[in-house]
Design a protein around this nucleic acid. Structure first.
Length: 287
DNA sequence: AACACCCGCAACCGCACTATA
DNA sequence: GTATAGTGCGGTTGCGGGTGT
């Protein structure tokens, strides 16, 4: 007996999300929370399957997302974690607040894989790639690195710094767990002690902010309003302002960042609460 | 300028896992 | 114990923009 599809595909929209759809989904989730993904598209008035809504929220709409290029530190950490955890992207993503597993997976497949191959390392095993020539020369185990290339040497050094002994890795993993535990405890303490009324703050936030226009800054371009590409990064707005001076686009992004900061400080996104839950607690963590 | 090719990334697909009836 | 629903996860696909010819 075959498995039923996650939803009826007939009549459902697929492909890139429009601004209107994003607004509907975002407004619905922020107002109602998430109880059941299958019901979300129906209640939000979207012709999408619940799975698609979930993915869109997690990978793009979540306000705590950190966009933009990976830093060298992040890349090093990613390589280290991949060596330990393999392709368990969600577990790896847990070490990068604001990054999604999809984003990390894409970054690995497009950049880091190449970087490691360039350094003569097998991206899946993290061990040196051996060739027939190397084996016959007794060079097995040596990365293929052009000795006179400064950039290559730099990259190699960077990578060597990343590879740490296994016991050290275990220790690091234990430390990571401790940090997470401390964060959870910290939040619980703040949740109880804080005196800020969340429901009031929530209302104020929505009164002062036009989420719809901030979800994607391309809303300012009427020609893009129907089928916009979902790609937007801080880099984009920075580039715009660098090349053309202050633009409405970068202003939009500033507003968006401001909104993210506000919401981020208000809501415990890691364990997403519904508005009912929030109102029940009635308190906010204080930064 | 036009075309082909490449690359990055968002979105989709299907399987796995868990909870529940 | 079994079937089913709901959700999470990892692999893959395909579109769109960038770059080379």
């Amino acid at each position: 007996m075959g498995r039923k599809p996650c939803c009826e595909k007939v009549g459902l929209k697929r492909g890139p999300w429009t601004i209107d759809e994003d607004n509907k989904l975002m407004n619905f989730i922020l107002n109602n929370g998430i109880h059941c993904w299958r019901l979300v598209p129906k209640l939000a008035g979207l012709m999408r399957c619940g799975k698609s809504c979930r993915l869109r929220w997690i990978n793009y709409l979540r306000p705590d997302l950190k966009r933009g290029a990976f830093s060298e530190v992040e890349e090093d950490q990613l390589i280290q974690l991949h060596a330990r955890l393999g392709n368990r992207w969600s577990r790896i993503a847990a070490h990068f607040p604001g990054r999604t597993d999809n984003e990390i997976k894409n970054h690995w497949n497009t950049r880091i894989k190449k970087k490691l191959k360039f350094l003569g390392l097998d991206p899946s095993s993290h061990k040196p790639i051996t060739t027939h020539l190397e084996k016959s020369n007794g060079m097995e185990g040596e990365p293929i690195v052009e000795p006179n290339s400064t950039s290559l040497r730099e990259q190699e050094n960077n990578f060597i710094n990343v590879v740490v002994p296994f016991d050290q890795q275990q220790q690091q993993e234990e430390e990571d767990i401790l940090v997470l535990q401390n964060k959870e405890e910290d939040f619980q303490v703040h949740s109880n002690e804080s005196t800020i009324d969340l429901s009031h703050g929530y209302e104020m936030l929505w009164e002062t902010l036009d989420v719809g226009s901030m979800v994607n800054p391309k809303t300012i371009d009427p020609s893009n309003s129907n089928d916009y590409s979902p790609s937007f990064s801080l880099d984009y707005s920075l580039d715009q302002s660098r090349n053309e001076g202050p633009s409405s686009l970068s202003l939009q992004e500033n507003y968006r960042q401001c909104w993210i900061d506000n919401v981020d400080s208000m809501l415990p996104w890691d364990g997403f609460l519904t508005i009912e839950d929030i109102l029940y607690f009635g308190k906010l963590p204080v930064n």
